[in-house]
């Protein structure tokens, strides 16, 4: 009796220890990745990296000014497309949450969220590259936009549903139309959260490579023309990483460091903002 009890207790402790080990096992790669990205990246990261153009093979130095500009342009184009569609469809699915069509939209958003990014690249190639026989920044922006829409839609919906029903009812009781209640009362009170969600979506999308490979393609030169192929930080890192040149590898690590910094800053920012929001709503 006692021995079986102590055996059960031992098993239980082993289980607890195993769970703690699982956490450590996942944190080791995280620490290793951050360590290598920072230690390798910092060596090639300087002001030149941000302001200079790529140098030809064999010449040391140079930077990714074109790729950084390209990523900014692509992400802006993507959000220009995704923010209105995402936010307004999120408004629909939260306002008419019980309807069958809202369920369909929600299903579409989840489905789109699960579509591999490379498939989105192929799709956008078919609709925005093939017809014009031209890789372009616009096509890249569309690809990123398609990936952003479901993230923004679901975040908006979730945050709108958190707004207390009494606020909406108050506005309606004062004679406001539904649209007015939503746009002047409900949406503004959820706005900080929605903006946080958008920032997170931006950070995630800035790190995407696969959908850009054959939509915005790549460009060794500086361009801001939307109808031309354009460089991006991620595609540049990819082509440098698989190249045989030491100097390009160093540049790739620097690019990775910039990407990780963007992601890290955005997540921290979002975390602080959510904390503050939760404090405000007293949750």
């Amino acid at each position: 009796m006692t021995s079986s009890r102590s055996r059960r207790k031992t098993w239980s402790s082993i289980f607890v220890a195993l769970c703690a080990c699982a956490v450590l096992l996942a944190l080791i790669p995280l620490a290793l990745i951050l360590f290598f990205v920072v230690s390798q990246g910092i060596q090639a990261l300087n002001l030149e990296f941000f302001t200079n153009m790529p140098k030809p093979v064999g010449e040391p130095g140079g930077g990714m000014a074109n790729a950084i500009t390209g990523t900014l342009i692509l992400v802006s184009l993507g959000s220009l497309m995704a923010v209105p569609i995402g936010v307004l469809s999120g408004v629909y699915t939260s306002e008419y949450a019980g309807t069958r069509f809202a369920a369909l939209v929600r299903f579409a958003a989840d489905t789109l969220n699960g579509v591999p990014s490379i498939v989105i690249g192929v799709f956008v190639y078919g609709i925005a590259v093939l017809p014009f026989k031209q890789f372009s920044a616009i096509a890249g922006g569309i690809a990123l936009g398609v990936m952003m829409i479901p993230i923004i839609a679901r975040t908006t919906e979730e945050l709108l549903l958190l707004v207390p029903e009494t606020m909406r009812e108050g506005a309606l009781a004062l004679g406001a139309t539904r649209a007015r209640a939503v746009f002047t009362v409900v949406l503004p009170s959820a706005l900080p959260g929605i903006v946080t969600g958008i920032v997170l979506a931006l950070a995630r999308i800035a790190g995407e490579t696969a959908p850009l490979l054959f939509t915005s393609f790549n460009n060794r030169f500086f361009t801001t023309k939307l109808t031309q192929p354009i460089a991006s930080l991620t595609v540049q890192v990819f082509s440098y990483a698989i190249s045989p040149y030491q100097d390009w590898h160093r540049q790739a690590w620097a690019g990775a460091l910039v990407l990780v910094t963007i992601v890290l800053l955005c997540s921290l920012l979002a975390r602080v903002a959510t904390r503050r929001l939760e404090g405000m709503h007293g949750r």
């Binding site: 209105p84 569609i85 307004l88 469809s89 408004v91 629909y92 699915t93 306002e95 008419y96 069509f101 809202a102 369909l104 939209v105 579409a108 958003a109 489905t111 789109l112 579509v115 498939v119 989105i120 192929v122 799709f123 078919g126 609709i127 398609v146 829409i149 479901p150 839609a153 139309t177 539904r178 649209a179 939503v182």
Partner: peptide, 26 residues
């Protein structure tokens, strides 16, 4: 209210259409 519903619903349709379009286009 109907206008609001249709207006926001239109953006919801876009989401559904994109998914259908991916399958169709591929």
């Amino acid at each position: 209210d109907l206008g609001f519903r249709l207006g926001t619903g239109l953006f919801g349709i876009v989401l559904v259409l994109v998914v259908v379009a991916i399958g169709f286009e591929l």
